Computed example of a mutant assay.
Amino acid sequence: MPKPHGFSYEQLGDHVAITHRGRSATTLRGARAEKFLAEVEAGDAQLVMARWTGAYKFGNERTARNHPRNRG
């Protein structure tokens, strides 16, 4: 699976704004923001941000594309 890239985050007071390629992806507040910051410090920041925003690949894209329902 390719490693995600293009994510960045900014801590603004009590909340965290996550962007992907310059566009807003999500905003976390309170306990969720604290948990996110702890995970970023402990692991790979790009993977953590991709997981928290839901912008990561599941590995089934080729299977879904070839499904009869999705064929053009």
Rank of each mutant, 00 (worst) to 15 (best):
Y56E: 04
N60P: 02
A55C: 10
P2R: 08
A17I: 14
H67G: 06
G13S: 05
I18V: 15
R29D: 15
F7I: 13
A50R: 01
A42P: 01
S8V: 11
T26E: 03
K3Y: 12
A31G: 04
P2L: 11
E41D: 11
T26V: 11
G59P: 04
P4Y: 07
E61C: 05
E39Q: 12
L28H: 12
F36D: 03
T63C: 02
K57T: 12
K35A: 15
G54T: 10
R51N: 05
P2N: 11
R32V: 09
T53D: 09
T26Y: 00
L28D: 13
H15C: 12
R23G: 03
E34Y: 00
R23H: 09
A31D: 13
L37T: 05
A45H: 02
E10L: 10
R32P: 01
T53I: 08
G54P: 12
T53G: 07
L47K: 01
R29H: 15
T53R: 03
D14R: 02
K35F: 05
D44C: 06
P68V: 10
H20F: 13
L47S: 04
E10Q: 13
D44I: 06
A33V: 05
L47V: 05
R32Y: 01
T27L: 11
A55E: 14
D14S: 12
R23T: 12
E10R: 09
T63A: 12
N70D: 06
G43P: 00
G6D: 08
S24C: 05
R71A: 06
D44Y: 04
V16E: 09
A45W: 01
K3E: 14
H20Q: 04
M49F: 04
T53Y: 10
A45F: 01
S24Q: 09
E34M: 00
E61T: 10
G6I: 05
W52V: 12
F36L: 15
A64Q: 09
D44M: 06
T63G: 02
T27S: 11
K3N: 11
P4D: 09
R51V: 07
E39K: 06
G22S: 05
N60I: 13
N60E: 13
K35N: 08
Y56R: 01
N70I: 04
A55N: 13
D44H: 03
H20K: 06
A33I: 05
E41P: 02
E39R: 07
Y9M: 09
R29I: 14
Q46D: 13
T26L: 00
G6T: 08
N66P: 02
H20R: 03
Q11A: 11
N66V: 03
N60V: 14
M1V: 14
A38C: 01
T26S: 01
T63M: 07
L47G: 13
L47H: 04
G30N: 08
G22H: 03
T19L: 11
R69H: 13
A25P: 10
Q11W: 01
